Simulated assay, not measured.
Amino acid sequence: MKLIEGQLIHRRYRLDSRLAQGGMGEVWKGYDIQLGREVAIKALRSDVTNAEAKLRRLRAEAHNSANLAHPNIAALFEYYEHDGIGFLIMEYVPSKSLADLFHSKGAMDPIELLPILIQTARGLFVAHSHGVIHRDVKPANIMVSDTGEVKITDFGVSYSTGQGQITQDGMVVGTAQYISPEQAQGQQATPQSDIYSLGVVAYEGLAGHRPFTGTTPVDIAAAHVNNPVPPLPDSVDVQLREFVMSMLAKDPLDRPKDALVVSRTLARIERRLLDQQTEMANTAMATSGNRLPRRVTSTPRIVLEAPASRLGGNKQ
């Protein structure tokens, strides 16, 4: 079955435009004609090899995503199969990915980056609380709206503690540039594996580049296992630097306890950096002697002047 524009799926979902196509399937922007809303439709292509195994993976993705109702996770609306093809009907997220932001901005100001990391950690904590490990946390799977809202997408290689074995023992699952050392060695992923991958995302956002590079994915994965993480720039706040490096510990036991700890710690750092920024702005205003202009009335002559201490400075 070949999917084409304008095709109606399940007598309800219209295929409008293909967004992406990969080895497992394709993703379309669609329209739910019953509810009058845009949707994303992920479909397993009929011409893939080993289709039954990949269909099991799609079913697992649907199962793992079904109960993850959270503002920072792209919602799954429906899953069904027809004529040997599986369809995931998901929330359409018309946003740029964090990978797009990294490409356009390079290193980001922590004040801009931290809210994205905090929201991602919150979404991951909810997934982990339901026994779901994402296993492919990377900038391309973190969508960021113009208003700064974050949605985690693509649970296509996720693992649930309640599901049966899908991947073979020792098989490496994940993206080499962001993979945890234990995943790179074919071990079972845990919540700490997702925390490591988010640590790589944080490192890239702060430094403007990933911690490890190589000529092949195997070289990069090996570096995650064997090489020490290069230090972050000295210009990065020391507490933020140290915490991101703790997320990148080789031993999962040395990483933060869970993603909730990550979100709360990063939120405290964000608050402190915002307070420092506000204090610096107020100090700059006081130093410049910025005062309100004098206002003079007629007889009797009265001069009204607002002292700088009452201006409040540049509040944020």
Rank of each mutant, 00 (worst) to 15 (best):
Ala207Trp: 06
Val262Gly: 06
Asp258Thr: 05
Gly30Phe: 08
Gly23Thr: 07
Asn226Thr: 13
Ala286Phe: 11
Arg268Trp: 10
Leu68Lys: 03
Tyr31Asp: 04
Ala60Phe: 01
Tyr80Asp: 12
Ala259Met: 10
Val296Leu: 10
Gln316Phe: 11
Asn50Cys: 05
Tyr79Leu: 01
Val229His: 06
Ser104Pro: 03
Lys250Ala: 08
Arg210Ser: 03
Gln177Cys: 07
Asp83Asn: 14
Ala267Gly: 10
Asn314Leu: 15
Glu204Trp: 12
Leu274Glu: 12
Asn50His: 14
Ala184Asp: 05
Lys105Glu: 13
Phe212Tyr: 08
Phe102Asp: 10
Leu124Tyr: 04
Ile152Asn: 01
Ala308Phe: 11
Tyr92Cys: 06
Met24Tyr: 08
Gly156Ser: 04
Phe125Ile: 11
Val144Met: 02
Val229Phe: 07
Arg14Ala: 10
Asp254His: 08
Ala51Phe: 01
Ala281Glu: 13
Ile89Met: 07
Ser46Ala: 15
Met90Gly: 07
Ile269Trp: 03
Ile41His: 05
Val173His: 00
Ser158Gln: 04
Val200Leu: 09
Asn50Val: 04
Asp219Asn: 14
Ala62His: 08
Arg11Phe: 10
Ile111Leu: 15
Pro300Val: 10
Val173Cys: 08
Pro211Cys: 02
Asp237Thr: 06
Arg255Ile: 02
Val296Ser: 00
Ser97Ala: 09
Leu232Trp: 00
Arg14Asn: 09
Gly186Glu: 05
Gln185Pro: 08
Arg271His: 13
Ala189Trp: 02
Ala60Tyr: 07
Leu76Asn: 05
Glu305Ala: 10
Asn314Gly: 12
Thr278Ile: 15
Ile142His: 09
Thr161Val: 15
Arg56Gly: 00
Met143Leu: 15
Leu117Tyr: 06
Lys151Tyr: 07
Arg295Val: 01
Leu124Glu: 06
Gly30Trp: 03
Thr265His: 05
Thr161Lys: 14
Ala107Arg: 06
Arg264Pro: 00
Tyr79Phe: 15
Asp100His: 09
Ser160Met: 13
Leu68Cys: 04
Phe212Cys: 00
Lys105Cys: 12
Asp100Arg: 10
